[in-house]
Design a protein around this nucleic acid. Sequence first.
DNA 1: TAGATTGTTAATCGATTAACAATC
DNA 2: TAGATTGTTAATCGATTAACAATC
Lengths: 206, 206
Amino acid sequence: MEEKLIPDIVVGRLPLYLRALQHMTNEGRQVTSSQELGERLGISAAQIRKDLSQFGEFGKQGTGYHIDFLQDQIRKILKVDRVWSVAVVGAGDIGSAVAAYQGFANRGFQVTMLFDNSPAKIGKKIGNFTVLDIATLEETIRKEGIQVAMITVPADQAQAVADLLVKAGVKAILNYAPLSLNVPSEVRVQNTDPATHLQRMTYYLD
Amino acid sequence: MEEKLIPDIVVGRLPLYLRALQHMTNEGRQVTSSQELGERLGISAAQIRKDLSQFGEFGKQGTGYHIDFLQDQIRKILKVDRVWSVAVVGAGDIGSAVAAYQGFANRGFQVTMLFDNSPAKIGKKIGNFTVLDIATLEETIRKEGIQVAMITVPADQAQAVADLLVKAGVKAILNYAPLSLNVPSEVRVQNTDPATHLQRMTYYLD
DNA sequence: TAGATTGTTAATCGATTAACAATC
DNA sequence: TAGATTGTTAATCGATTAACAATC
């Protein structure tokens, strides 16, 4: 049923559109246009229309887009019209922070497990989570059918954790460790490394 | 002295090259090639050579690149051959975690200040930091000449904080709040929103 | 109707890759 | 020397933008 091949760069912009639309809903807005969306996001109106047109016709000439309707459509496209269970591996500062993060609500995700390998942490409470033993990760994740995980362990353990997650059936990994993970091509990885992000900006400073 | 205009997408890959080279150094390696780097990073060898050639000739035919030398060159290009002072605004879970993050060492950054607006936090110790009053932000950042900051406040306060940082002279912002910031064109922003990253991957799941 | 804005096509622009002479 | 790998050019590929007929 997936007819067309959509460029990944287009898929990558949809979450930004969705976020802006949710923001507009919070402001009590009903209708928007490609131009307004573009101004908010720093993206051209033509590009937004082109991106959306890959998936269907969601607007009306002369009027624009109904915000609620477009939101629903993008949620379906991105498959965040449901709640994905997320496992967090690594109960350090970052892992604890993302496990407690309030920002996943209404965006399609709920952290349901927090793993670590440290005997000092296993079994202890961190926020609402009881830290689980990483030795039980594969079995637990497979049993629950979890497909989404975040890696928040130190760099030297991240690849081993990734291997374990892949073995357990995880198909999408958000990696906070500062290195490039090696995974099979059917597994998606997104990296978020604060030093890398900052280094990308210092080039432009004096 | 900046002769050529370098595409931002090229600048964005340099931190990845640098990270891989640092990793190789840790493994005790001396020499690498565009092919090896490419395999590690999932980038074509041709692209790596092309990217590097924008800045100079760093390799030798038949041999490849001296890792230490190339690292030094990229550090200079990215201006991380020095240590940038970084201000963190927002002393919640995420702000506290990035303020304590060990991964900035040797990558050009040191968090030196942690701000918040909550009377319950101001003056208290969080890790090695005494939380500073956001009311003093502009003056303090300007006096110290800080150009790099991270925003880790809730979404509804992020734009106001960004405005304040820009007024204080900050030129590079790493934004953890889930919204698009509006800043003048001379200020760089990088966004990192876990829900957005995850939504970019669920499209490919079943 | 007049004005606004979509969806789409064609044109432009930019990025990636392939190929190879140069040379270590 | 023979083999390897660079830096660079030209070709290819893909993404963005401009423009406009369709139509609400």
